[in-house]
Simulated assay, not measured.
Amino acid sequence: MDWAILLASGVLEAVWATALGASQGLRRPRPTAVFAVATVLSVWGLAVAMQTIPTGTAYAVWTATGASLTVVWAMARGTEPAGLVRVLLLLGIVSCVVGLKVVS
């Protein structure tokens, strides 16, 4: 269950990162509110997961999940370029996260 919470928290990290970018320096109310709520929930989920998952592993999975999804979302929306090398590098990050789960 803690792994599911950790992955959900990683998804929320992507949500808050995207909302932070859309907030224009925390000047737009709706993205700022999404950023604030998603940040609290994301960090709370990370804290819960770290009760049973080693800190280094949990943090690596959390950041890799959030960063990868943030980039994928930006590529899907067309705000960042999508190329073969970028996609392969993101797959490498995801593979490493899966590897951490397998050996934990």
Rank of each mutant, 00 (worst) to 15 (best):
T55H: 15
L6P: 02
A64F: 08
M1V: 05
W62I: 10
A36L: 10
G66P: 01
I5R: 14
G45P: 01
V98N: 02
A4L: 13
Q51F: 00
V61I: 15
A49N: 11
V97L: 13
S95W: 09
A49G: 10
P54V: 13
T70C: 07
G10S: 01
G21C: 04
M50P: 08
P81W: 08
T18Q: 14
V103F: 09
K101S: 00
A17F: 10
A17Y: 10
M50K: 12
L46F: 05
E13Y: 05
V97Q: 14
V72P: 02
M50E: 15
L6A: 03
A33W: 03
A76R: 08
L46Q: 10
G99P: 07
V40Y: 05
L41R: 11
D2F: 12
C96H: 09
R86P: 02
G25Q: 11
V40Q: 03
V102Q: 03
A38R: 09
A47H: 09
A47E: 09
V48T: 13
T32P: 08
V11K: 06
A67P: 03
W3H: 03
G10C: 01
L6V: 01
I5Q: 12
L91E: 05
W73P: 00
S95P: 04
V87E: 13
M1N: 07
A33Q: 04
G78R: 12
T63D: 04
L41E: 11
A38N: 06
V15C: 14
A82N: 02
T32G: 10
E13M: 10
E80Y: 02
S68Q: 14
L89E: 03
V85C: 00
K101R: 13
A47F: 08
T55Y: 15
A49F: 13
L84I: 06
A82C: 06
A67Y: 00
T57M: 13
V40L: 07
S9Q: 08
